[in-house]
Design a protein around this nucleic acid. Structure first.
Lengths: 199, 199
DNA sequence: TACTTTTGCTAACAGTGTTAGGGAGATAAA
DNA sequence: TTTATCTCCCTAACACTGTTAGCAAAAGTA
């Protein structure tokens, strides 16, 4: 009775093909160029088959946003765990965030809706919460170490995130109008200042 | 021979009607809901008439991005000119930027392509340059006053802009998931830290 | 073999930006 | 005044988009 198992396996395979096709189209010509018909064409199935696997186009894109958050979470935790000192942790996480956004531009765009319609949904993803926890823990550790009782870690996290996200989204929509080297310098300067204000 | 004058006047009137219709549609249901056909319907002309006044849809949206930059420039200069002390100027400009983004969300979205396709063009607008000059002048003044020769004003401007833009774009795509009061606190904290690092 | 379920297709609906081509009216020249 | 030109603006189409209804063929079950 492995029939239904095989069916499930085959169905999963088609689903993966859909995601793979969508990803390739996005990498080649950007998310705007991704259409249901082009995906159908790539996987050699007709259009309605896609709707057997995903409720709508948004659901397909959301899948990549989720993947993005998972990957970012992993890399942020790895960066933090490489250091003991909270200041070093914060610096490492800033670099990791920057690195992730540079190497996963397509996913980052989806995660925060840069230069594209859709994805207010992605902002409500539970993976966001974990990202916040990872960074906030280091900020709290630093506050304790610096014997600063006046620091609101949640507030400081949002500051951290704003700088990072601002820099990245300007870079993404600006098509490297500002050169890459300056961007990295701005990041380093901003994070150095951020850390200094936590001491 | 006021005939051609009248014609030009009427033509300009239709152009204004197009912009007005586009603006009203955007305010009601967001930029995604703005379509050439809906505009045509609103101005009670057929679709191709719109293409007599604008090269394409992008050109219509770009008009609002330009208006946005002009308004922002004006408000930033006003904010700066209210104070003599460069630190006060920077704080005032940060508040002005924040205020502008809050009260002109639709324009801000267009200016920096938040949550929508299009508008890599708007990033190349000359109005951007002026904005940079306004802020940079205050940063330079502050560097001189603080006798700091190590400050790269251009770099600091980008830091300033990143914090502002990051905070605002998170707020816009996040549909006020994070509450408004915290956002203002984050802004004040970030700018206070920014200014502190210029002393 | 007959029945049921699953699968995946064609074709359509309603919308998008954009443009080719032509008809009617206003202006200018005869 | 008649004829020619020119400007204005419309209808209709093209090539797309996301999404879905309905049906035919294949696969599995009795």
């Amino acid at each position: 009775m492995g029939i239904i198992e095989r069916r499930l396996r085959q169905k999963e395979e088609v689903k993966m093909d859909i995601l793979k096709a969508a990803w390739e189209l996005a990498k080649k010509d950007g998310w705007q160029a991704v259409s249901i018909r082009k995906i159908a064409d790539a996987i050699e199935y007709s259009v309605p088959v896609i709707y057997d696997h995903f409720e709508n186009k948004e659901a397909i894109l959301l899948e990549f946003a989720k993947l993005g958050f998972e990957k970012l979470n992993k890399q942020m935790e790895m960066a933090r765990n490489q250091y003991e000192d909270p200041a070093d942790q914060i610096k490492a996480m800033a670099d990791a965030y920057w690195e992730f956004a540079l190497n996963n531009t397509e996913k980052y765009q989806l995660m925060y809706g840069i230069g594209m319609a859709c994805c207010d949904v992605s902002m409500a993803l539970p993976e966001q919460q974990k990202l916040m926890d990872t960074v906030t823990s280091a900020i709290e550790a630093m506050a304790i170490k610096s014997k600063r009782t006046d620091i609101n870690a949640c507030l400081k996290y949002h500051t951290f995130w704003s700088v990072m996200h601002g820099l990245i989204s300007i870079k993404i929509v600006g098509n490297s109008a500002v050169d890459a080297q300056l961007n990295k310098m701005v990041l380093d300067d901003a994070i150095a200042g951020f850390i200094k204000n936590l001491r």
